[in-house]
């Protein structure tokens, strides 16, 4: 994600978030963009599904039923309306599992990105604003983290701490913060040289205030752009960790864990892995579309 910084950084951006009329403007921009609209619809739907999973799900996602193992989806031979998307190797209803799985996938995706964002933005602001020794020390730390592939990092940490929704959020959060730190640092570097910051500094406003009042609002928009895409990446990463046996553990379900559990059945009972796969793909598509649109809106250059 760091390379995004080349296209977005060093740019002065109007502060859209603070102006109330901005919302209306966004709405107009959104309707004009086909992909943006599609993205928003998908993301909103996914969130609604996650929130309403207990209401929507026809079955308990963890209830096993040996009599009903590997029932195919309703439109196939032997399928029943009882299990619209079929059942898995323990007779659990796949539709219900996917509905519930959306909760964990989205929570892990969003929370870990927020956590990464908080760490990254803080480190980036401090490094960029103070510069000097603090900057180079923090940047070496960033380099170190960048040089270790995320999945490898997660692998080692999760081998120590039992994988759960909570630990996954923490792990993905602390492995992904570097991208934000780099971006925010370069933003902060350019902003701090600008007149209003210098002015604030000269009349004795404290560092903390300058950072929170002046720097933070100015880096928020680029943060939003990267973080949307990061949510998508995280959802996929969670699936990969499930493949390695380090995703969420049963009875908790996530799309990644359903997909991973179904991989032994790809040749014989395709529906186990296909439906969660579709869920992931569609959601990621929606998030990326939304993210692209956000970038177009927030980055005047690419308009």
């Amino acid at each position: 994600m760091t390379h995004e910084s080349h296209t977005i950084s060093n740019e002065v951006r109007p502060n859209l978030i603070k102006r109330p009329s901005a919302l209306k403007k966004w709405w107009r921009l959104l309707i004009r963009s086909k992909t943006g609209t599609v993205g928003l619809i998908i993301v909103v739907t996914a969130i609604i599904i996650a929130l309403l999973a207990p209401v929507l799900a026809p079955h308990n996602p963890a209830a096993i039923n040996p009599a009903n193992m590997l029932t195919p989806p309703v439109w196939m031979e032997n399928g029943t309306t009882e299990h619209i998307l079929g059942t898995d190797n323990l007779g659990r209803d796949i539709l219900s599992r996917i509905l519930y799985g959306s909760q964990v996938s989205l929570i892990v995706g969003v929370s870990s990105v927020v956590l990464a964002g908080i760490i990254g933005v803080t480190v980036g602001l401090i490094a960029g604003y103070f510069g000097g020794f603090i900057d180079s020390a923090l940047m070496r730390l960033v380099d170190a983290f960048l040089a270790i592939p995320t999945i490898l990092f997660a692998l080692v940490i999760l081998a120590v701490f039992e994988p759960s929704v909570f630990t996954l959020i923490i792990v993905l959060g602390i492995t992904n913060w570097v991208a934000y730190a780099r971006l925010v640092r370069s933003e902060a570097l350019s902003i701090k040289e600008r007149d209003f910051v210098r002015a604030a500094h000269s009349i004795g406003v404290s560092n903390f205030k300058i950072i929170t009042r002046h720097l933070l609002p100015n880096v928020i928009s680029s943060f939003i752009v990267i973080s949307t895409l990061s949510v998508a990446t995280t959802i996929i990463l969670e699936a990969s960790l499930s493949f390695l046996g380090l995703g969420v553990q049963p009875p908790t379900v996530s799309w990644g864990s359903i997909l991973s559990d179904g991989r032994d059945y790809l040749a014989t009972s395709w529906w186990l892995a296909t439906f969660p796969g579709i869920a992931i793909t569609v959601t990621v598509l929606g998030i990326i579309f939304l993210g692209d649109w956000l970038r177009d809106v927030l980055d005047p250059k690419s308009k």
Partner: peptide
């Protein structure tokens, strides 16, 4: 393990299954 937990629930025993690497 999951199946055993299911069987035990029939006699009122709630077994929380914890999977470990």
């Amino acid at each position: 393990a999951e199946m055993i937990a299911g069987m035990w629930s029939q006699i009122g025993v709630t077994a929380n299954v914890e999977f470990m690497e």
